[in-house]
Simulated scan of single mutants.
Amino acid sequence: MTEKGWQNARDVGEKLKNIKFDAAFCSDLPRAEQTAVEILNHNRFAKLKKPTVSPFFREEFYGYFEGTDMNQAWYVAGAPHGVATFKAIVEKYSIGQAKDFLKAADPFHHAENNQEYWKRMDQGLELIKQTKTIHDGSKVLLVSHGNTLLSLVERFGAGKFDVTQRPANGSLTKLAVNDHQIQVVSFNQ
């Protein structure tokens, strides 16, 4: 993680230091786990020292485009559909459609499409719901990635939030979750 990334994690830890978390989850990518541990280290109430780490909360898998300039990747994915940027794809279509376009543009078709992405992510959401330490009124920390956050907000935000702009690193988004629904309460705070 960069020094800026560590500073973002410390800043978020300070913002959340007075929230008693009943559980914590994160992506299995090192920067997400390091961020979650740093947040928990700042927490005054958490008995938790480590999050539950799971690949379910990973960023979208970009296949052939992993590690490349994503502006170029989104151009390759969107240009055949008359849109040349991620923002333009999302404005005209959706984040889900952007995933489908990227998989179609991947010469090996290894990138996750929308259905594959949500099959994985839904397993993560179910993991949270089935955790025995979580009950009505529980507070749960989830550390993931920008496009994962955008995907959650697009799906559960009821169109109330701008998903054409990436959330700031270290920003906070609040979800209300029960057995029947997930609702975005606030985004990119």
Rank of each mutant, 00 (worst) to 15 (best):
L48C: 04
L29C: 08
E33W: 11
Q123R: 13
W118V: 02
P107K: 05
G5D: 10
S94Y: 08
N113W: 12
N8T: 07
L40A: 00
W74D: 00
A24W: 02
D11P: 06
K15W: 09
R58I: 08
P107T: 00
D100A: 02
L141P: 08
K20H: 15
M121W: 15
Q115R: 04
T35H: 07
N43K: 04
T131C: 08
V12Q: 10
K99H: 13
F45I: 11
K47P: 03
K15E: 14
P107Q: 05
W6F: 00
S94M: 06
D28K: 03
L16D: 05
G96E: 03
K132P: 09
F101C: 09
G137Q: 03
N41V: 00
I19S: 01
I134N: 10
F45S: 00
A105N: 06
L29G: 02
Q34C: 01
K129C: 13
H145L: 04
G96A: 10
D11M: 04
S94Q: 02
P80R: 09
E91S: 12
L48E: 08
A111V: 10
F101I: 00
E66A: 06
L102A: 13
F56H: 10
G82D: 07
N113Y: 14
L16F: 00
P51T: 01
G137H: 07
K4R: 10
T133G: 06
S144T: 15
H145K: 11
D136E: 15
W6N: 01
T52P: 11
G78T: 09
F65K: 08
G5V: 13
A32D: 07
A105P: 01
I95E: 11
R120T: 04
Q72C: 01
K103I: 01
V53Q: 03
A46H: 03
T85H: 06
F61M: 08
A111M: 07
K47D: 07
C26F: 08
Q7Y: 09
E112A: 10
E14S: 09
N41S: 05
A36L: 04
K92Y: 03
R10Y: 10
T85A: 03
Q7K: 12
E14A: 10
P30F: 11
A111Y: 08
T133A: 14
L142G: 08
T85E: 03
G63E: 12
L141S: 11
D22G: 06
L127R: 07
K87C: 07
Q123F: 09
T131P: 03
Q123M: 15
H110G: 09
T52W: 08
Y64N: 00
R44G: 01
G5M: 11
V83G: 05
D22F: 04
K92M: 01
Y64C: 03
T85N: 07
A84E: 14
A73C: 06
K17R: 12
D106I: 07
N43Q: 02
S94W: 02
K50I: 11
A77Y: 05
A104F: 07
I95Q: 06
H110A: 14
L142W: 06
G67A: 02
G5C: 11
E126V: 06
Q72R: 01
D106Q: 05
E14Q: 04
L29T: 14
K20Q: 15
V76E: 15
L102H: 00
T52M: 14
K119Y: 10
F108D: 14
K139Y: 12
A46R: 09
Y93A: 02
F56V: 12
